[in-house]
Amino acid sequence: MKIVIVANGTLSETDRLLSRIQQADMVIAADGGAVHLHHMGIVPRIIIGDLDSIPEHILSFFKEKQVKILKHPVRKDQTDLELCIEYAIDHGCTDLLIMGATSTRLDHTLANIFLLRRLADQGIPATILDAYNDIHIVVSRLTLTGRAGDLMSVIPVSDRVKGLTLKGLEYPLTDKSLCMGSTMGISNVFTQDKAEISLNSGAVLVIKPKEDI
């Protein structure tokens, strides 16, 4: 099941995102993500969170549309986005796209990005998409599509990454070991329409930036 979660962070280029959301089997709003969806004219299947970021008139609108509301207390041990991800996993998610997960709050942004590790460990393809980047965490393999000249960075996010292999890029690697803190994988370049990343152990953060915005 393809699921889209829309969170309360920065969300722009709504026209470009609209088609991606409409292709989903289920749309989940993480608290204030419901505001983004309201602006786009999209009704989510469910709204999850403490509801502290949704104006009353928008909440009332979605209640009238019979959207399921799963309210959590403000004082809790998990973020609204993590609760949404758990819901998605429990409801058969096989492909997850997360929007609105990045913002000027670096702490929230980093926490949201590292939520991808849980999905990667369970073999669920997941992407955080914003106006400037496509973001993934990889623990085994990933193939990305692009165009020759597109950029891609691969950043170790475990103490050691072993067996890292990169194909379809200007700076390929074969069975390379990298330690967390290495910048070797920054700003690689697509040489064809596909790039392949694989590794034997550890985890890498893969970011495909958009420089043409």
Rank of each mutant, 00 (worst) to 15 (best):
E64H: 09
K65Y: 03
K65N: 04
K65P: 07
Q66F: 03
V67Q: 08
K68Q: 09
K68T: 10
K68W: 00
K68A: 08
K68L: 09
I69M: 01
I69W: 03
I69S: 00
L70H: 09
K71N: 03
K71W: 00
H72A: 14
H72V: 12
H72Y: 15
H72Q: 14
P73N: 05
P73Q: 11
P73C: 08
R75P: 06
R75T: 13
K76D: 15
K76L: 11
K76P: 12
D77R: 11
D77N: 15
Q78G: 04
Q78M: 14
Q78R: 15
T79L: 02
T79G: 07
T79A: 02
D80H: 11
D80F: 13
L81W: 13
L81F: 14
L81V: 11
L81R: 10
E82F: 11
E82W: 13
E82G: 06
L83C: 08
I85Y: 07
I85C: 05
I85M: 13
E86Q: 15
Y87L: 06
Y87E: 14
A88L: 03
A88K: 02
A88V: 13
A88F: 10
A88P: 08
I89M: 13
D90C: 03
D90F: 06
H91T: 15
G92M: 04
G92W: 09
G92D: 14
G92S: 10
C93F: 02
C93M: 05
T94V: 13
T94N: 12
T94S: 15
D95M: 06
D95W: 11
L96Y: 00
L96P: 00
L96G: 02
L96K: 00
L97V: 15
I98S: 07
I98A: 08
I98W: 13
G100Q: 11
G100F: 11
G100L: 11
S103W: 01
S103E: 04
T104E: 11
T104G: 14
R105M: 00
L106D: 09
L106C: 02
D107V: 00
H108C: 07
H108I: 02
H108R: 06
H108A: 07
L110I: 12
L110G: 00
L110S: 01
A111H: 09
N112W: 03
N112T: 04
N112I: 03
I113P: 05
I113Q: 10
I113E: 06
F114N: 11
F114S: 10
F114P: 10
F114T: 09
L115K: 06
L115P: 00
L115V: 03
L115H: 12
L115W: 01
L116N: 02
L116C: 05
R117M: 01
R117P: 00
R117Y: 10
R118C: 00
R118E: 00
L119Y: 01
L119C: 12
A120G: 06
A120P: 09
D121I: 05
D121N: 08
D121M: 05
D121T: 11
Q122M: 14
Q122C: 07
Q122P: 00
Q122F: 07
G123N: 14
I124N: 05
P125M: 02
